[in-house]
Computed example of a mutant assay.
Amino acid sequence: MLYKEKYILKRVDNNDFPAIKELFWKVFKKKVTLSYLQNKYNTSYLNVNYICSIAYCEKIPVAFYGAIPQKFKRHNDEIYVAHACDSYTLANHQRKGLHYELAKLAYAIMKENNIKFVYAFHSENTYYSTKKLDWKEHKHLQRFHIKIFTLPIGKIVNKLGWSGVYDIFLNQKLSSEAIHKLTLEHKDKFCLKFNSDFITYKDSFKSHYYIEIEGCIFWFKIQAIMHIGKFFAPSEIALQKALKRLKRKAFFLGINEILFQVDPDSIASKQLQSITKPKESWLVGYLDFDKNINLNDFIFTYSDLDTF
């Protein structure tokens, strides 16, 4: 697609990832590996791949609109949605309508693949950039911070890139029974389909761990602190007991905080409020392609986030 006679806008394919890596470095001055980007956007396990768009100017990558497909499930109903997660443009190509046009191209690709809506966990930048695209507002997630008084060795480990050390101390492979328990809540709501294929996909670009304590299951990553993506607790009492033991584990690993981010309408939120008060987190924004979609029928979790 030719735009303003100088830009080529196209759907991303596997050949574009060196360009996306180059663009990421130029915009953020942060390095990401080619395999990280390829694995993050390789959602072939869903039979839907590359719903992103990229702009070139004289063969130089100048803007990117990234999104990943996800499958949500309620009872026997399954639908595709899209999680918009990356958007960046070189400074000297901003204010030329590239973000808008790339988004529109990505939305057209999504509709072709029967995706019902696109959503994002808004930052301040994405909140304002979606206004022109007629996005709607849903609800804020809640975050719960569990502080641990220990030497913050985890932050040093993260800065030095030594996170693989946790593989020695923590379990990595979820059992089928644990996966089943993590999918038990909210049978009457659409939730991201959490199964072995999804876990394998996530593990292809991030390291994740799990712990079973007091009948509770925690699936998490460690990035300076412990980020709980998804958990199951049979009761508030069981969660309180499990967190005491989880805090001890974190203490000896030099992790000074455990962070939960949950949907305000989730059972998880109610259980966590028996332990500490929540703070406001990301606003969920969305654009629906199917007018029968009601986001009150959906529960979002921290593990839905692209970088989790």
Rank of each mutant, 00 (worst) to 15 (best):
Met1Lys: 14
Met1Glu: 07
Leu2Val: 15
Lys6Tyr: 06
Tyr7Val: 05
Tyr7Gln: 06
Ile8Cys: 14
Arg11Thr: 08
Asn14Tyr: 15
Asn15Leu: 14
Asn15Lys: 01
Asn15Arg: 01
Pro18Asp: 05
Pro18Arg: 02
Glu22Tyr: 15
Glu22His: 14
Leu23Val: 04
Phe24Glu: 11
Tyr36Asn: 04
Tyr36Glu: 08
Asn39Gln: 02
Asn39Met: 07
Asn42Ile: 00
Asn42Tyr: 01
Thr43His: 11
Thr43Lys: 05
Ile54Asp: 08
Tyr56Asn: 00
Cys57Asn: 09
Glu58Leu: 10
Lys59Leu: 07
Pro61Val: 05
Ala67Trp: 05
Pro69Val: 04
Lys71Gly: 02
Phe72Asp: 06
Glu78Arg: 13
Tyr80Leu: 08
Ala82Gln: 02
Ala84Asn: 08
Ser87Ala: 11
Ala91Asn: 10
Asn92Val: 14
Asn92Thr: 15
Leu98Lys: 03
Tyr100Glu: 10
Tyr100Gly: 10
Ala103Leu: 02
Ala103Gly: 03
Leu105Phe: 08
Ile109Met: 08
Asn113Ile: 04
Asn113Pro: 00
Phe117Trp: 03
Tyr119Asp: 05
Phe121Asp: 02
Ser123Gly: 07
Thr126Met: 12
Thr126Phe: 08
Tyr128Ala: 11
Ser129Glu: 11
Thr130Ile: 13
Leu133His: 02
Asp134Leu: 15
Lys136Ser: 11
Lys139Met: 15
Lys139Ala: 15
Leu141Gln: 13
Arg143Pro: 13
Ile146Thr: 10
Ile148Arg: 00
Ile148Leu: 03
Thr150Leu: 05
Gly154Glu: 02
Ile156Ser: 09
Val157Gly: 01
Asn158Gln: 15
Ser163Pro: 12
Ser163Val: 13
Val165Glu: 14
Tyr166Ala: 04
Ile168Tyr: 13
Phe169Val: 07
Leu174Ser: 11
Ala178Val: 09
Lys181Gly: 09
Lys181Phe: 06
Leu182Phe: 06
Thr183Val: 05
Glu185His: 15
Lys187Asp: 13
Asp188Ser: 14
Phe190Trp: 08
Leu192Ala: 12
Lys193Glu: 01
Asn195Gln: 08
Phe198Gly: 06
Tyr201Arg: 01
Lys202Asn: 07
Ser204Asn: 03
His208Gln: 07
Ile213Thr: 03
Ile213Phe: 08
Ile213Ala: 05
Phe218Asp: 06
Phe218Trp: 04
Phe220Trp: 02
Ile222Lys: 07
Ile225Gln: 11
Ile225Cys: 08
His227Val: 04
Lys230Phe: 04
Lys230Ile: 03
Phe231Ser: 04
Phe232Thr: 12
Pro234Tyr: 03
Ala238Ser: 12
Ala238Glu: 10
Leu239Thr: 03
Gln240Ala: 13
Ala242Arg: 05
Leu243Tyr: 02
Lys244Leu: 15
Arg245Asn: 11
Arg245His: 12
Lys247Arg: 14
Phe251Arg: 15
Phe251Gly: 14
Phe252Val: 09
Gly254Val: 13
Ile258Lys: 01
Ile258Thr: 05
Leu259Arg: 13
Gln261Asn: 12
Gln261Phe: 14
Gln261Cys: 14
Asp263Lys: 01
Pro264Met: 02
Ile267Ser: 10
Ser269Trp: 01
Ser269Ile: 10
Gln271Thr: 11
Ser274Pro: 10
Leu283Phe: 00
Tyr286Arg: 00
Leu287Asn: 13
Asp288Met: 04
Asp290Met: 00
Lys291Gln: 09
Asn294Trp: 09
Tyr302Asp: 04
Tyr302Thr: 03
Asp304Cys: 06
Asp304Leu: 03
Asp306Thr: 12
Thr307Cys: 12
Phe308Gly: 00
